[in-house]
Design a protein around this nucleic acid. Structure first.
Lengths: 350, 350
DNA sequence: TTTAGCACTCCTTTCCCTCGAGTGCTAAAC
DNA sequence: GTTTAGCACTCGAGGGAAAGGAGTGCTAAA
């Protein structure tokens, strides 16, 4: 059977109406929405065809129609108007971005939160990019004889610092030498090696130097391990309760647990794809078979990428979410391209 | 009417049973729980008295009894066994604390998360203490001619750093002088003054010095304003759905919004009170009239205090929550007293 | 190919009934 | 005076049965 233009138009009407009203769409409504040029009986014939072809479903014999995953897919691919965000939406997104991103460290988590509030669905955020982070540079700042500040800069451009207490006094004059030692031997290498290298150096050092060195390495290890890339941040979980399909706690349970306990099951995005929409059963994870996910990526530069995803019912408002999410991702990319470019790769520090 | 010992015992049985089972308690159950020394008819007489005195309520004529807020209050004040945490509980709490607190900066938020998982109710965390934070010290580290790292140490012992880009080249030799300038003129003063002081100094400086100075001050302002004290962190919101009284989404709505949107309405603790229990209508906030809150505080030292609260139904397990929360708060206080003492107040840095 | 007409389906809402846990009260026992 | 057995009564929960209605599927005519 052929998918005529009229069938497509009907599918579009059904999908958009169902997205809006969350209840099966009747032939009468469709006839009206199409301007009354055909009768509801004609629509019913077409609807029967569309069900047979697998684009629509009927909850029960005497009910209206709702889109099947296949129907949503066709809608997203062909029928949906790929609209741009309106000026007002753009203004809202920009004002949300305004001044929120001072802390480069927390970009990932922040982005997730903002997206959730922008699209009114739960969202998640994760870093994609370099698989392993190393320390690019150490600095040690004197505080007093029993403590100093360790500053660790990673090659994904995070700068972290912490006050460390020593057990033996350390003269502040020794700190530059220590920092030099660290920068010579402990940059650009992976976590595991940090420990072995430290052990290798141990015999050459007195306790008063070894201790702070070891503390700094320990801190650096924590910084690397705690890197945002390993975390999946989720926010706006409560938004799913606003969706009629998840009013029932038991229905929402699966989604809820994937958004809290099993975050790692949330889909990621293939490289070089700016945005992807996963509809219902297209999702790999069992808990997402009744949900849809829209994922987009943005560049933080220096081969760092951030990923943001939106989770909602299959009945999700794809047009709006896609428009807002891609605008948001583009804005972020632009933002980092302009003001926050990455530091140069080579260190030209003395 | 007098509150006899037997009435108190009955009240205790009713409260604990209701906390456990979440359904009205019958006279028959009480008679059994009290060892069968009296009949259920006797209990019924007593129950009628307790209702009249306002300690118990009856959902409807032919139902069992549940505690009223007044009943919970008496229970908490007089009847509840103020138990210590068991060895096993203590072990669990300690292992949760173990190694989690590296980042002094995020103590507050971490504490909230841990408490929520320890007590299985939603929790919130906020800082209480010094009303205004100032910068104690600045450091500027060279990266390249167009960027440097600003390290800001506040007098509540947070150390924050960020990479800043300059528009004009800055020779790395100038950074120590700049840092010196900052440490001389811009430490120990409030946010508003930072700006005015910067303006006052502007004429004496060339653009190549003024720009990075101004950027650093801007960053310092952000660090101060973004101080955790202004934030209320909430976690474990989904725990409230585990409570039968909040199965209904409409019931949970009020609590949910206070735990997400209107966090500032969550109660804080009077100074010098180690722990406080607020039952139902004792809460000021309307949305908490049907809920109870247990708040405790812990010391981070140097007149910094942290606050953690637990939110649950009035039917909350006060004995367990109170025991675990106070043990947790004490552990935190001890932890900071021992290992993480604050840096000295006077800076003895060159 | 379209459409009016109409029987049919099945969900939703409402009402009523039953069942049972639990009470309140009375009168007798302690 | 206090306790208790006995019993009628109350009220919510659960389970059909019935009514109502939106919407369909099919047939036959336009």
């Amino acid at each position: 059977m052929e998918l005529t233009a009229r069938k497509k138009e009907i599918l579009k009407v059904v999908t958009e109406r169902y997205i809006d009203a969350a209840e099966p769409v009747s032939s009468k409504y469709i006839a009206q929405a199409m301007g009354g040029s055909v009768s509801s009986a004609t629509i019913r014939n077409e609807l029967a065809d569309l069900v047979e072809m697998g684009y629509l479903e009927q909850p029960h014999t005497s009910a209206g129609r709702i889109p099947s995953p296949k129907g949503y897919r066709l809608y997203v691919n062909e029928l949906m108007e790929r609209r741009k965000v309106s000026d007002q939406e753009a203004a809202e997104i920009n004002s949300a971005l305004q001044g929120k991103m001072q802390e480069l460290d927390s970009v990932i988590a922040q982005a997730g939160q903002m997206v959730s509030s922008i699209v009114n669905y739960p969202a998640y955020a994760v870093a994609a990019g370099k698989s392993s982070v190393t320390v690019r540079r150490y600095d040690l700042l004197p505080v007093d004889t029993m403590s100093f500040i360790a500053v660790v800069m990673t090659d994904d451009s995070r700068v972290k610092s912490q006050l460390l207490r020593t057990e033996l006094p350390v003269a502040s004059e020794q700190l530059p030498a220590l920092a030099n030692l660290l920068n010579t031997h402990f940059t650009g290498i992976h976590t595991e090696e940090l420990g072995t290298k430290l052990m290798a150096l141990a015999p050459q050092l007195g306790a008063e130097l070894f201790m702070p060195l070891s503390q700094t390495i320990e801190y650096a290890t924590a910084v690397i391990d705690n890197s945002e890339r390993s975390h999946v941040f989720t926010t706006g979980q409560s938004q799913i309760f606003r969706q009629p399909e998840f009013q029932d706690l038991s229905k929402a349970d699966g989604l809820m647990s994937i958004l809290t306990d099993q975050k790692s099951q949330l889909p990621v995005l293939d490289e070089n794809t700016p945005m992807q929409i996963l509809i219902g059963p297209e999702n790999v994870s069992e808990a997402l078979k009744d949900a849809s996910v829209v994922v987009a990526s943005y560049d933080i530069g220096d081969n760092m990428r951030g990923l943001i995803g939106v989770v909602g019912p299959t009945r999700m408002d794809y047009a709006t979410v896609a428009a807002r999410l891609s605008y948001f991702a583009e804005s972020l990319t632009k933002m980092f391209g302009k003001n926050n470019q990455l530091p140069p790769k080579e260190d030209d520090i003395p």
